[in-house]
Amino acid sequence: MIDVKCRLNGKEHTLRGHSMARLLDVIREEAKLTGTKEGCGEGECGACSVLIDGVLVDSCLVPLAQVQGAEITTIEGVAHSKHQKLQQAFIEHGGAQCGICTPGMIIASAALIDRCQGRVPNTAEVREALAGNLCRCTGYMKIIDAVQAAAKP
């Protein structure tokens, strides 16, 4: 068991667990933030996406020991950030159907919007940026609409 100090959604946090515990499980079970989902457990679906120091990662592949001192953002942190707009856009444009991929999609979209620094990403860029996040419901069209709408300054 180790104690890992980090910032989780802007607040100081100590996460306790086995050093090799998956960050996904620690976030869900220790920090009780269940918005981050598991879809495959092997880095393929992106349902478990979080930002670590602003970088998009699959939390099912990250061992707890690796986030010492890191800044972690989960979907629960998005509501209070500038990316709240993304959530609104997903609702308006129909980007969330069953909703299970949605937290991961929004996290991945937030990373893209940050990278674009105020520019609206074109469709190809959005498709590329979200290629690690699988959605079985939407066919991606409405997700792309939502991301581009939210990226508008």
Partner: peptide
């Protein structure tokens, strides 16, 4: 019309509770 989905807000905020939650 395209009125917002009923449970949309819970889904986009991660608050929707699936069985594993």
């Amino acid at each position: 019309t395209k009125i917002p989905r009923k449970e949309g807000l819970q889904k986009v905020t991660g608050a929707a509770r699936y069985v594993d939650d």
